[in-house]
Each structure stands twice: as structure tokens, then as C-alpha cells.
Design a protein around this nucleic acid. Structure first.
Lengths: 98, 98
DNA sequence: GTATTACTTAGATATTTAGCTAATTAAGCA
DNA sequence: TGCTTAATTAGCTAAATATCTAAGTAATAC
């Protein structure tokens, strides 16, 4: 069993558990944003936002690139396939797939 | 904004965050099980299992009914629609739905 | 080169979470 | 009426989480 600290599915659900992080993902769905722009939307210190962004990055839900002093974050949707598959599978209740 | 303690979406993601609880849901996908049967599958005390089942019930991911001394748990898939919708929506990145 | 701006890292801390043992409730059985 | 079994509730605790302030890094502007 993949160690929980590295298991992508676990990291994903961990990342999605927090309302602030889900809000960040919703914002990034619309357009790429810098750390600063994301922070403006929350009544929270910059380091706290940085912490959430880092966690999202570890879950591979966002990517970041630096240009100058700025760091721009983008939504990465590919890893969402996993959780989608997991949930869809649960919903096929009883229909023993395999 | 719905208080996080009651917000169904928040309760749902909170419930899905734990590997033990995800495992329980996978087991209940196959068939209804009593608390005792679920507990047998884990190296964990009965009260701990009870705690997880309670949390899943609050998230409306499972329902329970008592018959005799036994309590049987069933998977409830309807609330999964919400998270499914949320994730699908994220995946429609940029395609400003509305 | 120094100051400013944008962001992250480090360190501290209150709260939440997930586990345990012990105690309780409730049903079944002799 | 007790005894046993199934499960939950209560109370405790270690670890994880989310927040903060202070300090550090790196790019820009003067």
C-alpha cells in the first residue's frame, strides 16, 4: 500500500478537504493568478496562503512558474481524474465491475 | 456562507479525506455490512470504527438501521453527486459555464 | 548599493483529528 | 434475573492541521 504521505489519491483528498483550498481551485478555474492575487481574496496572511498553495502543488492540483518577483499558479486538472474515477466507481454500487 | 460544521460539501470532503473511511465506503459498495463486520476488516478498536461510521453518517455517505443487537450500514450514493459535480465543474476549466 | 516588493521558510501555537481504554446501553439467551 | 454479545458514548492523548509573526530570499527600482 502506498505510504499515505505519498499516495496521490490520499494527497488529493487531503488537499480537497480544506474550504480555502477548494476556493483557490475555483478561482484558478477562471484564470491563472499570482500568489498575491490569490491572497487578496482571503482574510489571511500571505504565509498561510503560501502554505495552502504548497499543499495544492504537492497534490498536483496546481502548478506554478516564476517570472520576475511573481509566482503564477495554474490549475492542473489531470489528477482530478483519479478522484472522479473513484467517486464514479462508488456510485456504480453493487454493479461489481471487474 | 454555510457554517463549515454543517455545510454538506465540507462534511463530504472531510469524510472522504480519511483512508479508513474511503475503505469502508468501498466495502459497502459491495454489500451492506454490520458495524462488527466492518470492524473485522481493520486492525482497529470497535470504538474507532464507530467513530468513523458516525462521521460517514453525518456526511450522509452511509445510512444505518438497527435490527436486534446489530446495526447494519448501507452506502448512500446521492450525496456523492455534489462532489462529482464540483469536480466535473473544475475540470471544465476556463469554459466559463454559467 | 540600498530600499521595496513578492513570496517563501522557520518557528510557535491553538484546534482538530484519529486513535485508545473504560464505561454504558440495549438486545438475546439461559 | 443475571450473563453475553454488539455497538456506542465518554474521556484521554498524540499527531496533524491551519493559522500567526518574524526572518529570509530574490527580483526590481532608485
Amino acid at each position: 500500500m502506498a505510504s499515505a504521505r505519498r499516495d496521490p489519491v490520499n494527497l488529493l483528498f487531503k488537499a480537497l478537504r480544506d474550504p480555502t483550498r477548494r476556493r483557490i481551485l475555483e478561482m484558478l478555474k477562471e484564470r491563472d493568478l499570482t500568489a498575491g492575487q490569490i491572497g487578496e481574496a482571503f482574510a489571511m496572511s500571505a504565509p498561510s496562503i503560501s502554505y495552502h498553495l504548497d499543499l495544492l502543488r504537492h497534490a498536483q492540483l496546481v502548478s506554478s512558474r516564476k517570472h520576475g518577483q511573481f509566482v503564477t499558479y495554474s490549475l492542473e486538472t489531470t489528477v482530478l481524474d483519479d478522484s472522479l474515477g473513484w467517486i464514479l466507481d462508488l456510485m456504480k454500487k453493487g454493479k461489481k465491475r471487474k
